[in-house]
Nucleic acid binder design. Structure first.
Lengths: 198, 198
DNA sequence: TACATTGATGTCAGCGAATGACATCGCCGC
DNA sequence: GCGGCGATGTCATTCGCTGACATCAATGTA
């Protein structure tokens, strides 16, 4: 739905449209402005023209605003693994999925940066990020099992992939200029191969 | 310290000794009996003969009761890596550290089991566990850097070690009989080598 | 047209985690 | 014996989060 459509609808419909989007925007703005802890849910809701109660109808908790998008990322990773050509090795399928994720992050570069800065500044948010990454690993392992890969190979390949994702992403975010994230990921995978061979 | 000793001390000192230990014990008991969420800090404190406020003086939050022991584990991992003979490869140093941890878990087997059951049953606790594991990985990476290992090798080796720890530990906990955790960890490391070799 | 239903939001009350400020009072060194 | 210290208690408060119920436009249906 376009912005024009939103304007059109205002006053016609009972409420402003896109409540979830407004809440998300308000939350991000406030988290960036004053930090996560210093922002209350009441403030977020108020800035979005809604009430606290409504915030909690859209997001299970204050942290989830920054993470609900992980669901679609998970879907992409799983599909990439599932759709990999037969005969692709587990680690190659995982690597392909991780690189697709890398491409996506690269597209929304500034957004990724801002988001990561907020998360990095708060331990509670780091916890949430880690559990989302763990969920991604679990989902990838499950997708591998769906291809006939057994444990512990499936789990190990998935965990290795997440390790590469984390490390590459952190480096990429820390770098000032813009360099290629998927390429950095490929390099990390080959480093990992050398390291474990150690 | 035995119950008898506690009785002896009562009345001599102003308070029962070992407040922290009593809080920890009370918390574990309650978490096992009714689950983490269904237990209030007030109940824990009351069972330990203390107040809520005192609980928060010993533990930064309700979850930390189950995790404050991670500090000494981290120390052990770091020391093992630091003290590894010169010329030991990064992954070998990490493997050695992880196996030491495995030995420790094995000694307190029932305790590990009970604890893990509580954690597994609650997402908040899983989050906390993950961030502790991430802290362990970061500390091991730092110890490797202290040996002259550069990034991303140091980080990758540390993350790989944590992945092996996690997966082996989970399997070991799930198994009914008692089998050897360090040995399981060695096996997982060699699986990982095969997996990343693709 | 009238009426029932539905769905997104609001209102209100309340619990429990966490924190700051200040009080208490044995213990220990001087 | 006195004065400070340290472990604990008391009190008040903020904030995240939840359940129960109310509101009211839109939509469907007789």
């Amino acid at each position: 739905m376009s912005v024009a459509a939103i304007k059109y609808d205002a006053g016609v419909s009972r409420w402003e449209p896109n409540a979830r989007g407004r809440l998300e925007q308000a939350a991000m703005d406030l988290y960036v402005e004053r930090g996560f802890e210093q922002t209350t849910v009441a403030e977020i809701a108020s800035r979005a023209g809604l009430t606290e109660r409504t915030f909690f109808r859209y997001f299970s908790d204050k942290r989830e605003v920054l993470f609900w998008g992980a669901a679609s990322l998970q879907e992409i990773l799983v599909n990439t693994i599932t759709d990999a050509p037969g005969g692709t090795s587990p680690i190659a399928a995982v690597a392909a999925a991780i690189e697709v994720a890398g491409t996506l992050f690269q597209e929304g570069r500034e957004r990724s940066r801002a988001r990561q800065a907020v998360i990095e500044a708060n331990p509670e948010l780091k916890e949430r990020e880690l559990i989302k990454l763990a969920a991604l690993a679990a989902a990838m392992a499950e997708a591998l099992r769906g291809r006939g890969v057994r444990d512990p190979v499936a789990s190990l390949a998935a965990e290795a992939g997440i390790a590469v994702l984390k490390i590459s992403f952190d480096e990429w975010v820390a770098i000032l200029g813009d360099d290629d994230l998927p390429q950095r990921m490929r390099a990390a995978f080959s480093e990992l191969r050398a390291v474990t061979a150690g």
